[in-house]
Design a protein around this nucleic acid. Sequence first.
RNA 1: GCCCUGGUGGCGGAAUCGGUAGACGCGUCGGACUUAAAAUCCGGUUGGAGUUAAAUCCAGUGCCAGUUCAAGUCUGGCCCAGGGCACCA
Length: 824
Amino acid sequence: MKQTYFPQEIEKKWQKIWEENGTFKTPDESDKPKYYALSMLPYPSGKLHMGHVRNYTITDVIARFKKMNGFNVLHPMGWDSFGLPAENAAMKNGAEPEKWTLENIAYMTKQLKMLGLSYDWDREVTTCLPDYYKWTQWLFLQLYKKGLAYKKDASVNWCNDCGTVLANEQVIDGKCWRCDSVVEKKYLSQWFFKITEYAEDLLKDLDKLEGWGDNVKTMQANWIGKSEGAIFNFKVVENDLTVPVYTTRPDTVHGITYLVVAPEYKDIEALTTPENKEAVEAYRANARKMTEIERLSNDRVKTGVPLGTHCINPFTGEKFPLWTADYALAEYGTGAVMAVPTHDARDFDFAKKYNLPMKVVIQNPENPSDCKDAVYAEEGILVNSNEFNGMKNTEAKKAITQKAVDEGFGEFKTQYRLRDWLISRQRYWGAPIPVVYCEKCGIQPVPEEQLPVLLPKDVDFSVVGKSPITTSKTFAETTCPCCGGKARRETDTMDTFVCSSWYYMRYADAKNDKAPFSKELINHWLPVDQYVGGIEHAILHLLYSRFFTKALRDLGLLDFDEPFKNLLTQGMVLKDGAKMSKSKGNTVDPDEIFENYGADTARLFILSDSPPARDFDWSDAGVEGCYKFLNRVWRLISSNAENINVDYALPAALTKENDDLVRVVHMAIKGITNDISNDFQFNTVISKYRELVNAIYDWQGKKPSLNDEDKAVLSFAIVTLIKLMSPVAVHLCEEAWTELGGEGSIHSQEWPVWDENLAKASSITLIVQINGKVKDKIEADEALNQDELKELALSSPKVKELTEGKTIVKTIVVPKKLVNIVVK
RNA sequence: GCCCUGGUGGCGGAAUCGGUAGACGCGUCGGACUUAAAAUCCGGUUGGAGUUAAAUCCAGUGCCAGUUCAAGUCUGGCCCAGGGCACCA
């Protein structure tokens, strides 16, 4: 064995051998239990960044650990390879999106292999290739047939820079998730997936996801935004219309003093009197001009104009005016709000500004409020509410809604904030939506046997203001599958999030050309046992994937409810306290690290300093430190190579020193196994590697020469160290294992087991406290009973001195650990 | 405003059940080896008091209370940072 550690040399060598031997291929059939470890698939932007390195290393270590622990592990990789950057590159340098994308994939694949990741590349999934997007289109058709995919005219989010519409989830603070430009509203006909159909299911099943963090679950719950309340219908005095409102506060219905409809409310023109028409029109025109950001801005003063018409409150018979104001949102509830200024902060502000009347209907009996200066939004007792007076408001909600139901002017209503998922995009580089439009037959799905609908090649990427796909002379023109007449093909493509909503299913059966996956294989491999990825997908990708799983379950394609059993959201990789980014110029190129230190150092370092869920601060000194440690490990093994036998036999009786080292090894096995099993605390795993290495060096320092017993103990320690480190330092451990004469790959060995009796020190350190403060430490035999420990503590000279002249009130003995003497 | 997460040395971070606070590492200081440097090895490193040096003592896990023989850990009330949601009726 070489005395010097040459990572680049051994890494290249083993990567080649693993590939040739198919070391990491996963058979579908095995007598071992299955385990599915998955990283979120990357967008092939060009090069790996440190966030990728962190993500994939974490999952790789998990996969290898599970394999050594007797699981048949599925650990695949693929490419989320549709998307706008490829198209932008085409516009900029004329490269074809497909060529650009596949070149990036080739380069990044090389990098992934250099990292020594244990993927089964036979299962690779590339979402932009026809053998994959054919099935994305097929799934679209199944959703369409089930009524879960539909087209409608709607007010949608439009990003001008990207030249396309966006889903609600892709609008962050009124800006585009990708390019950060301000999003506008447009009224267009677009394709949607009916995710709202699953709102309750998606919310309720969050409870099943015990292996998900609360942060992600609450983010999803907030996004779904369930609220329970009532709909009341108010008759308009001036005509035959009724205005329905949604409220979560039916208990305040007797306090209505006016009603607000959104400027986009469908009946607003019919609700406006001729005298008010001009002012209302002006107000609505102004609202249209405003961006979402301006309109939703928090510190904006509320504005509105009266419509001139009135409604009757069926509970009181009172007449109240209708207004329009942009604090009512067209998209939520019914687009109209009943206003109770005394018990709602927004209504209060508005009423104050326009001098609208106020009526108190809920009181705290101990501390009545007149609501002149402040809103009363707490619980209380109803007043001014006819037969409901004196009722608790929490009870009145139900009673009042029930009255409306009984008398036919209202109903109980559950409302969600979640909107349907807008999936069509006016871009080229995506999976074409497989429908055609026929003048006679209307919307027609493309027959399944005609899939895939291939992307055209004859497109001009230099066009502005429309999708490049529309420049194709061959694509749009087609025939109707129903009547055979002339028809026009849909030119919109699907949101890339559609492609990534089911890729993890395809890995189970990646080469199937008859179906997206067989039912048998998907039910075998899924759900994913451990999913690892960034928190930025907490809502978008994870919510969409959950929806897909439920929809495909209801289509009979699979038999589980949730796709990802356990989710680990890894923190960001920072440098100098800021997120690594090109614009800040604080990125670190993985290639340079591989070249200078090797992949094992990169893997070790990226896991070493922080627990996976927390942000990780990159430091060059830290990399250096990990490299030194691997050198230290290498020296330990190589300098002892001739004294190590992988088939060691430990004698039953050992000298004290050897027994102590054996115990340290057992403690390391136990500690490391528990740390990995418990939330993948790799940072403490690595500190335990270091402790073990330090202990072996210390032991060796006391041995000028080694006898047979020493050699057996050293072999046990070193072989165990190599096995424990093998999921992280994958190349170094493989090389060492082979050099020491180990059979097969280290990565196919069984994980070491510890003996509970040996995984602790041979004696205990008794902590002696006086009044809860540590005063002495005594080496003691662990067999001592409580009385003996007490005796031992009291016999300590230190204790005698400190208790002199004082009364011992009480003595607490914690077995094998501690004695606390309470004195006065 | 609501929700989630977190707050421990100069820094990253450890600390199964309430039981030695600061593991391991980075940095730094001192030493060994060397003509010298690198590499390597050994030792110190929470703050304060104390001593030639030690021993030793006091304080200390965001703040204030509480429970307990004993609190980083449990309870109540706050403060701060990061993230998410938000005129959602």
